[in-house]
Amino acid sequence: MQLTRTQTARAHSRRSLTDVQIQVLFIAPTIILLVLWNIFPLFYSLYLSFTEFSVIKPDVPPAWIGLQNYNKLLNDPRIWQYFTLTGRYVVITVALQAIVGFGLALFLRERFKGSGLITTLILIPIMMSPVVIGLFWKLIYNPAFGIFNYLIGYSVPNSGPDWLGEASRALWAIIIVDVWMWSPFVMLLCLSGLKAIPDYLYEAAAIDRASPWFQFWRITLPQVAPLLLIAILFRTIEAFKTFDLVMGLTGGGPGDATELIAVYLYRAAFTRFTTGESSALAYIILVIVIAVSNLYVRSLNRIRGENH
């Protein structure tokens, strides 16, 4: 009996994979795909960023000009202005999404009759295509026949503000749409984090007569923090690259009031076709995004470390 069991175990281990094989087998396809589809374009763009090149002139090969593209970009005051604008946009929109999303998750964590339905309904905006959303909100914001002004109290056409036409409001108009669209995303991730918090923590706190405030700061927030940070991280990266929503809504206008850096980049790459210079700008953006993400990942690891 003893013998057969060892034999089975041995046969078993011969047939099954070792842990190292499993690691390679499980991770390799992902890494290979990412290398092929990201590393090659990344290096090619890096090369192009040091050249004078335009995709609409494929006969003219890229001409090496060293750091000139970077020099030009970093000395352009408009670029700094668009970066500042993008920074403002990212901070405001992600903060609002985090607050609204986390708040909704807190309110929805305890089930009530129909809570599943309500949650699904709230999720509908993130299922929609940003381009089409941009088009539609343009109609919704229209001062003559849009329903936005009508619903906030300007029932006479053209009496309310022109949300997309006034420089001071256009950025807020985009933020409203972005928050409307993406708060449910933060909510969903927070909700799964909240549901994973074991009840006994609250039960212990209740026995100790801890205040709800204390429970929130010492149990809820630290326990949800990892998922909340992942949600914020992804939203920050996406907000930095916000492009199709702005194109649908304002196209960067009025003037350059909503010219986010990704919109400016798109224009440089696909209307002016300054491929070399746009690659350089893309690299500057990439460095900033990586720096910001690094900060997030570090605080994420710190929080994880504290929890365990």
Partner: peptide, 12 residues
């Protein structure tokens, strides 16, 4: 890999 603006990855 998610950070590079898609506009520029698209060219290569």
């Amino acid at each position: 890999t998610r950070m590079l603006p898609p506009v520029v990855v698209t060219i290569p």
